[in-house]
Design a protein around this nucleic acid. Structure first.
Length: 484
RNA sequence: GGCGGCGUGGCCGAGUGGUUUAGGCAAGGGCCUGCAAAGCCCUGUACAGCGGUUCGAUUCCGCUCGCCGCCUCCA
């Protein structure tokens, strides 16, 4: 078994071949920290973190780098609006980003690099490009000369002539070619700036990713990710910079995530049709958003709408409900959730209870991270486990063993997907749990006495408070409802 | 105009050259239950249109129609 991957440069699904056997070096373009991210940004971030997680599951030793763009025109604008210094803006939104991603179950990359910590590296890179005649200075600005890089356009599949035909912007003064892009911007009064051979200024956007990715991962690293909207010009420019300066190949596999659609339009900050991840987490909860983001192919455009989120909520609840039911039934035999389980490539095919689901999960994910098939495998596993649960209630001891095994597999696979369920009944607060259990006891007593009116009154009140009480042959189980 | 992608049953969404069910949500019927909830069982017979290749195409090729992304900051 090997992993296949849709490579944007190859425009095809091709075998995943890493620079170094067993190791993966990957980079993903992170946020510009001038505002809360929206759920389109979030989806891409969640996906690359998930890919990282999956590669780890398959036995790779992964180094994952993500950047923070903390120097940018938009940050300067935002600082004016919020009337705080640019550093205040970047600190505030960097933190918000980290909290939001964590709420959706994403782990921090191995290396998180900030542009402002690498200004010196960028200046050196720009100097190198100027020395090689690939970049030129003009009035304190430094431009990259696209005509000086032979491969320009190879990622986005276009030629300089193609792009000139579709030109829509006025050429900037000082540029030799309209598509030449900024490496260094001269500072205006009051703007954040750093010294450079061309005077005080700040780096252009694209250079940071070339510099930081190669600094930490070297050239020819394995995976570079981002949204499809970054293919041109950002990633094209990254290639031009890195390969122009260092020679050789920049990246082995380019991966791009599809855009989130609001109605018929792409969600984007400039269109203003955004749903902030911060708000969506508040409304729907992190795990549901994670389910929504990861349950479909990363390459597809995906809608964000009430109905689609309702589907994700229901599907996710099916999983969490199963787990509380299993917990209720198994008690102390409940398996523990594994932490970063591994099923390395080349290891023996899984055997035993639940193995068929693991195999389906892996086969699907190995094929360009086809999560839809893997989610389906987990759903089928849950059906099987629910059957075992019923049989367990009927006193079938073998079914109970099977339930334990399937629950264990469920926890393994959902851990790879990055879900962490509350395996307790759902109340983290012992006092709340105690009170609920007391009420459940009262209700059980009422039911035993066939005082159904009183029993129903208790259940109604619990429901009102967001506690779902369900009667089973082995007693009443309860959970905090996910949709409150 | 250039480059790229998509069009699957009520909705979302995988997949495959043919004899086996993607999966989820919603719907209908049933089982279980004091009632309920959850769960389980059963049901729906889908692949934009038109041609072509083929013994056979939803799955390959061409065309048409429709939708979307990139070509400008953008995940």
């Amino acid at each position: 078994m090997t992993i296949k991957i849709f490579d944007s440069m190859a425009r095809d699904v091709i075998p995943f071949e890493t620079r170094e056997e067993g190791k993966v070096a990957m980079y993903c373009c992170g946020p510009t920290v001038y505002n809360y991210i929206h759920i389109g940004n979030a989806r891409t971030m969640l996906w690359f973190e998930f890919i990282r997680r999956y590669l780890d599951f398959r036995g790779y030793d992964v180094t994952y780098v993500m950047n923070y763009t903390d120097v940018d025109d938009k940050i300067i604008e935002r600082a004016k609006i919020e009337k705080i210094p640019p550093e205040g803006i970047t600190q505030k939104y960097t933190r918000a980003f980290e909290e939001d991603l964590a709420a959706m179950g994403a782990e921090t990359p191995d290396i998180v690099s900030k542009a402002t910590d690498h200004i010196g590296d960028m200046v050196a890179a720009i100097e190198g490009l100027v020395d090689k005649g690939i970049a030129y200075e003009s009035d304190g600005n430094v431009w990259y000369s696209v005509e000086a890089f032979e491969g320009y356009g190879k990622l986005s599949g276009r030629t300089l002539e193609d792009m000139r035909a579709g030109e829509r912007v006025e050429p900037m003064p000082g540029k030799r070619h309209p598509l030449d892009f900024s490496l260094w911007k001269t500072a205006k009064d009051g703007e954040p700036s750093w010294d450079s051979p061309w005077g005080p200024g700040r780096p252009g956007w694209h250079i940071e990713c070339s510099v930081m990715s190669t600094k930490y991962l070297g050239m020819d690293f394995d995976v570079h990710g981002g949204g499809t909207d970054l293919i041109f010009p950002h990633h094209e420019n990254e290639i031009a910079q890195a390969e122009g300066l260092l020679g050789g190949e920049f990246v082995r596999h380019w991966m791009h995530a599809g855009m989130v659609q609001m109605g018929t339009e792409k969600m984007s900050k400039s269109l203003g049709n955004v749903v902030l991840a911060h708000d969506a987490i508040e409304t729907f909860g992190g795990p549901v958003l994670r389910y929504w983001a990861l349950s479909g192919s990363y390459r597809s455009q995906v809608a964000f709408s009430e109905s689609v989120i309702a589907d994700s909520t229901a599907a996710y609840e099916r999983w969490s409900t199963f787990l509380t039911s299993a917990q209720h039934s198994l008690g102390t035999d409940m398996p523990e959730a594994p932490d970063h389980p591994r099923r390395p490539i080349g290891e023996a095919v899984p055997k035993g209870p639940g193995a068929e689901f693991v195999i389906r999960f892996i086969e699907s994910m190995d094929e360009d991270f086809n999560s839809a098939g893997s989610f389906a495998a987990v759903h089928d596993l849950v059906r099987d486990a629910n059957r075992a649960l019923e049989a367990t209630h009927a006193g079938d001891a073998e079914a109970r063993t099977r339930l334990i095994d399937l629950t264990s597999t469920f926890l393994e696979l959902t851990n790879v997907l990055g879900f962490r369920f509350e395996v307790s009944a759902g109340a983290s607060d012992a006092l709340v749990a105690g009170l609920v259990e007391f009420l459940i006891e009262m209700r059980e007593k009422a039911r035993a006495e066939k005082a159904f009116e009183r029993a129903d009154a208790i259940r109604d009140k619990l429901t009102e408070l967001g506690v779902v009480a369900e009667d089973t042959p082995s007693g009443t189980r309860w959970r905090i409802g996910a949709s409150t």
